[in-house]
Amino acid sequence: MIKLMICDDHAVVRSGLSMLLHGRNGIEVIGEASEGDEAIVLAQQIHPDVVLMDLSMPHGKDGMTATSELKKLMPDVAILILTMHDDDEYLFRAIQIGASGYILKNAPHDELISAIQSVAMGDAYLYPTATKRLMGEYLDRLRNGAEVVTPYDTLSEREREILGWLAKGYTNKEIAENLFISVKTVESHRSNVMDKLGLKTRPELIKFALKKGLLNFE
């Protein structure tokens, strides 16, 4: 079963989604929240596999902020953004802060179910036109000779240094002692690294570092 939590400020929408999704294709709706703060608290209590998160919630914490904070508290939870905003800025920001997927509220029911299943299995999901726009932008940059900036390129020198230490299995305390900085500073850099690279767990971090050739123990 896929344990699903729904966060939307409209009770009718929450109820409708719950009725639509509960019991379909192995999905079990285990909780509902009306705004971001409530979602953060509830998620830590019920431990969903997937959170279906609205972006625009005027009463309380918005979905973007809640997603960012929840990913830091519960890195393994998959957050699928369900929104009316077909907007590149929202899309790119959601991906940057760790959302596993982004789908529009006018999507067919079967597509929503497929998106939930995809992010629950650890895959990313974007609605088709969003994928085309992302690929189009990437290809345009290549054709125009512009530098394509990767997530790794956005890391500072210190963040790259911290990434290397983490990948080699050092604890925050050990890194702090070796670099003569505070544990709190290490934790802050670690959080930034994970956010920027879109990583959730240490195994993912190690795999990334291995691909980048960062695991030289000399």
Rank of each mutant, 00 (worst) to 15 (best):
F92N: 03
M57H: 10
G98N: 03
T131F: 14
S34D: 09
G122S: 04
S34H: 08
D153F: 10
Q45L: 12
I6M: 03
A11D: 11
G122W: 10
V193T: 11
L197Y: 05
V12F: 07
F217I: 15
G101T: 12
E28N: 06
R202I: 15
L205R: 02
S68M: 13
I30P: 04
I95H: 05
P203K: 00
R14F: 10
R93P: 02
I97P: 04
A11L: 10
T129V: 12
A99R: 05
E147I: 13
E38S: 12
I6E: 01
D76T: 14
L142G: 05
V13E: 09
F180T: 09
E38D: 11
P128T: 14
R14K: 09
V149T: 15
S114V: 00
M121A: 05
D54Q: 06
L205G: 03
R14W: 09
R24W: 01
D110S: 09
R202P: 07
I95E: 04
V149Y: 11
T83R: 08
Y125Q: 05
R141E: 08
I6N: 00
A115N: 03
Y127K: 13
D195Q: 15
I46L: 04
M53S: 06
L199W: 11
K212S: 03
H22Y: 06
D88W: 15
L197I: 05
T129G: 00
E147Y: 14
A167R: 00
S188C: 01
R190W: 12
Q117Y: 14
G136C: 11
D195R: 14
E157A: 15
S182V: 03
R24Q: 05
S118F: 02
S118E: 01
H22W: 03
G31N: 02
V148G: 11
K200L: 13
R24I: 05
V51T: 03
P128L: 12
L215R: 07
M64D: 01
P75V: 11
S34P: 02
T201G: 02
N192R: 14
L52N: 07
G169E: 07
G136E: 13
S118R: 07
A99T: 06
P48F: 04
S182G: 07
I40R: 09
M57E: 13
M19H: 11
G101F: 15
S15Y: 08
H85K: 08
L112W: 04
L52D: 07
W165T: 01
P58K: 03
G23N: 08
R133A: 02
I206G: 00
Q117M: 14
L80R: 05
I81V: 14
T185V: 02
I95V: 10
S100R: 05
I95R: 06
I95Q: 06
D49H: 15
E111Y: 00
A146E: 14
V41Q: 13
D9R: 06
K212T: 01
T67H: 04
K196T: 00
G136L: 07
E137L: 09
T65W: 07
R133D: 03
D54N: 08
S15G: 13
L17N: 10
S15R: 13
L4A: 00
I46A: 11
V183Q: 10
H189F: 14
I113F: 08
E157R: 11
L214E: 11
F180A: 07
N178L: 13
S118W: 07
M135S: 02
M194G: 06
H10I: 11
V51E: 01
